[in-house]
Simulated assay, not measured.
Amino acid sequence: MSAPRPGTDGLADARARIAHLRQVRRLDDAERAARDALSSWPGDAGLLCELAAVLLARERYTEALPAADAAVAAAPGDERGHRLRGLLLSMLDRHAEALSAAWTSVSIAPQEPVAGIAYARVLQRAGRLRDAAQAAGRVVTLAPSSADAHFLLADVAGDLGDVTTARRAYEETLRLDPEHAAARHDLAVLDARARRPGRALRGLIDAGRLAPAMTQVRSTVVAVLWQLSGRMRLWLVVATIAVLATAESALAARIVGGVVLLLTAGLGWWSLRGLPRGSWPVLVATLRTDRPLTLVYAVLAVCLLVLVAVVATGLGVLAILVWFALIALGLLTLVVGLARRRRQRTSER
């Protein structure tokens, strides 16, 4: 690709092209276009900001910081250079410098929502959550029709543990922008924490359809499926006690076993009612990505088959097999949980 032709119109076109490429996530092309344009206009603050923004999107923070520094030096009165510099310093955990740069951006353009959003994000990453919540609230006041402003408030409120505010802000985000995949995902996380697995799965499937590249959707779906398996295990403990209590009478064992199976089907329908069409292949495919979870559901299916055998034969004593299976699943869940927490701690070091 040849460098753009010098001139005012060419400079404006170059900036617009780079911004468009970045917005449509063609980041390789955007970086190439930014570097080509800078060969013709090496000191242009706008192009330097575009390059810094592209590298920020590519998570190459150390490379992006010199471009932001150069943009600030070229145009110290432009808030964007300070804003990008603050975000980059924050991602590099240089929080004191990041706060100073982000505050400069807000001071230059106090009525600019994007400057306020960046300042709130820098405060959030620095651990100053209450200050971040105040900054986010001010951004919502400045731009009440901005989905990004409400999403910011929801995110910070969630970190503060203010679930009511977070849920309300996520819902407002989705009212303003129904295709905001991150808001759908994070609202589903709140549903999962509130022990509403059916609603959580609906939100996660919607988020995955809106943003197939959002990698955290799969891991959250897996977490919700683990949660559902835990509910199923607890229910089977109660059901097995009931069946074993009637083991001396074949008729009673059949009746109790049949009631248990009907209630299991009803509870399953109630938990997963309202899932969008086409959800089951997605859930099955996700289930298969986690081998321990696949094993858990396979054993749970065997437990239900044992209860079917109780209904068919009247041998309530067969339910003792469910006990052994549930004990094995409890041990498996414990081992998997400990191993994954240990792996997570190791990766965070």
Rank of each mutant, 00 (worst) to 15 (best):
G274I: 06
G274K: 09
G274Y: 05
G274L: 10
G274V: 07
L275E: 11
L275V: 06
P276K: 07
P276C: 07
R277G: 13
R277A: 14
R277Q: 10
R277K: 08
R277Y: 02
R277W: 05
G278R: 00
G278S: 10
G278P: 11
G278M: 04
S279H: 04
S279C: 09
S279V: 09
W280F: 14
W280K: 12
W280C: 03
W280Y: 11
P281G: 09
P281N: 07
P281A: 10
P281C: 09
P281T: 09
P281F: 03
P281V: 06
P281H: 04
P281E: 08
V282F: 01
V282I: 15
V282R: 04
V282M: 03
V282A: 11
V282Q: 13
L283K: 10
L283Y: 00
L283W: 00
L283S: 11
L283M: 11
L283C: 11
V284T: 13
V284R: 14
A285N: 11
A285W: 02
A285F: 01
T286K: 03
T286V: 15
T286A: 08
L287P: 04
L287S: 05
L287Q: 06
L287C: 06
R288A: 10
R288P: 02
R288G: 08
T289W: 04
T289V: 07
T289S: 15
T289R: 13
T289K: 10
T289N: 03
D290N: 13
R291I: 11
R291S: 12
R291L: 12
R291T: 11
P292F: 07
P292L: 09
P292M: 07
L293K: 02
L293A: 02
L293P: 05
L293E: 02
T294A: 14
T294Y: 00
T294C: 06
L295G: 04
L295K: 14
V296H: 09
V296S: 07
V296Q: 12
V296I: 13
V296W: 00
V296K: 05
A298T: 14
A298W: 01
A298I: 01
A298N: 03
A298P: 00
A298R: 15
V299T: 15
L300R: 08
L300Y: 05
L300D: 01
L300T: 06
L300V: 06
L300C: 06
A301M: 05
A301N: 00
A301R: 12
A301D: 01
V302H: 10
V302M: 03
V302R: 13
V302T: 12
V302F: 02
V302I: 05
V302Y: 02
V302L: 10
C303A: 15
C303W: 00
C303K: 01
C303E: 07
C303D: 14
L304R: 15
L304E: 12
L305M: 12
L305H: 07
L305F: 09
L305D: 03
L305Y: 02
V306G: 12
V306E: 07
V306D: 12
V306L: 05
L307C: 05
L307A: 04
